[in-house]
Simulated scan of single mutants.
Amino acid sequence: MQRTLRRLLPEASPISTRERLRAALGALTGILVTGMIGGLALRADASLPALIAPMGASAVLLFAVPSSPLAQPWSILCGNTVAALVGVTAALLINDLFVASAAAIGIAIALMMTFRCLHPPSGAIALTAVLGGPAIHELGYGFVLWPVAGNSLALLVLALIFNNLTGRPYPHAIKPPTTDHGTADPAPVQRIGFTSEDLDEVLKEYDEFLDIDRDDLETILRRTELRSYRRRAVHLDCASIMSRDVVAVAPDNSLKEAHDLMRAHHFKALPVTNDKAEVVGIVTQTDFLDKANWTKGRPRIGFGQRLRLVLSGKSAPSDTIKDIMTAPVRTVSPDTPVADAIVIFAEEGLHYLPVTRSNNKLVGILSQSDVLVAMLADGATQDADMRLSA
């Protein structure tokens, strides 16, 4: 019996109580305010509905699963509009309610999938246009503008405000692009395991609508793969392989001083520390190339970077490191597993990671080369152990 009940319950990812309350409060607010807006807008004509029932289903998507492709702005606006048009047309042309209902929902689904605006509550809107009774039928195609478009737009605006204020980016953001080196090589994280083309081919074979963004699905799979590599990686921490004799610069060091240091030591990055040895940023070759201009062999802050600094409210540029450094900077601690650093390098497109203690004081720096050497050394050790045990 228990096994049967478990089969009936859908498998779902764990959701915190905070997230449940956030979604419930969002739907409550969205429907309440949408209804109030409708009531105020229709004071002159009490015969029109201020709020229609399908908006409840839209609220579930917009506030409980705002990352779903079914909940995006194009889906709700286009999906509801298309469904309303189809439903009104079916009601006008077909006398039999059941036949009109079937035609409305079938054609609405086909059109929504064609226009990539599938929105499940839109099916209820198509049926409402057919089965809503004399009050809805008298509206004719006016039903499309109000209440459908009016309710949809109001609920969408509220979802935009509420979700973003409560930490859920909406519309759902496309994953940030991986670091582009301007070559044909894929990003490091895409060079292991499956390729994007592999995923596309599997989705074609699956040939079924999935309620998850395609890029989100790839990101989840790649992160799962990275976590698997991390679990099987070497049991080393960053302290065991990091460079300890670190050359750092201060925010007020001149660009020329920092560049001369990088050339003298053949470094491609320098941590930036304050007078307490706390890491406040990092300066790289890319920073020099992108944010500085070269005049008579000396790096200086260019006009574009000066303008960006002024507009951001920072202090006036003075051709110093603070004018071009990357801040804040991603760091790791000495006891961070090397396997975790591998994931950071791969996912965030970084080449160097300052190593800091809990008080943010610099104790070392880790490079991709350090990690590579450690992995090769560990692989050689494991091969030797296997030969000895054979």
Rank of each mutant, 00 (worst) to 15 (best):
E197G: 13
A110H: 05
L255D: 14
F143Q: 14
A124C: 03
V279Y: 00
I125L: 11
N360G: 06
I365F: 11
L145T: 11
C238G: 00
S369E: 07
R308Y: 13
A346Q: 02
V99E: 10
F194Y: 05
P299Q: 15
L236K: 08
A384D: 09
D323Y: 03
V247R: 06
P169R: 10
R18C: 14
L261S: 14
L255C: 05
G123D: 09
S333H: 10
L210H: 06
R223M: 09
H266R: 07
R330T: 07
L40C: 08
A84Q: 01
A316V: 14
P188K: 13
L42V: 04
A59K: 00
A233L: 10
H137D: 05
N253W: 04
V283Y: 02
V247L: 12
A184G: 11
L127Q: 11
N95I: 06
H259F: 01
I31A: 01
N95R: 09
M1F: 08
L139D: 12
S367G: 11
T224A: 10
S16P: 05
S101H: 10
F288D: 12
Q305Y: 06
G349K: 00
L350Q: 05
P73L: 03
L255V: 02
S196P: 02
P66H: 07
N80S: 14
S254K: 12
S67N: 11
L97K: 11
T195N: 06
G26N: 02
K361R: 12
M36L: 09
A339D: 08
A346D: 06
N274K: 04
S240P: 01
I241F: 00
I15G: 01
Y229T: 03
I105A: 12
S67P: 04
K276D: 15
S240I: 00
V60K: 03
A269M: 04
L40A: 15
T284V: 14
E225G: 01
L372S: 11
T178R: 07
N95P: 00
N164S: 07
D287G: 12
Y170E: 05
A71K: 00
L372V: 07
L92V: 13
M113G: 10
T284A: 10
A341F: 01
A327N: 09
N164A: 08
V332L: 05
L139W: 09
L226F: 08
L111P: 07
E225K: 10
L139T: 15
G379M: 01
Q305R: 08
L28A: 13
T183I: 01
L158Y: 15
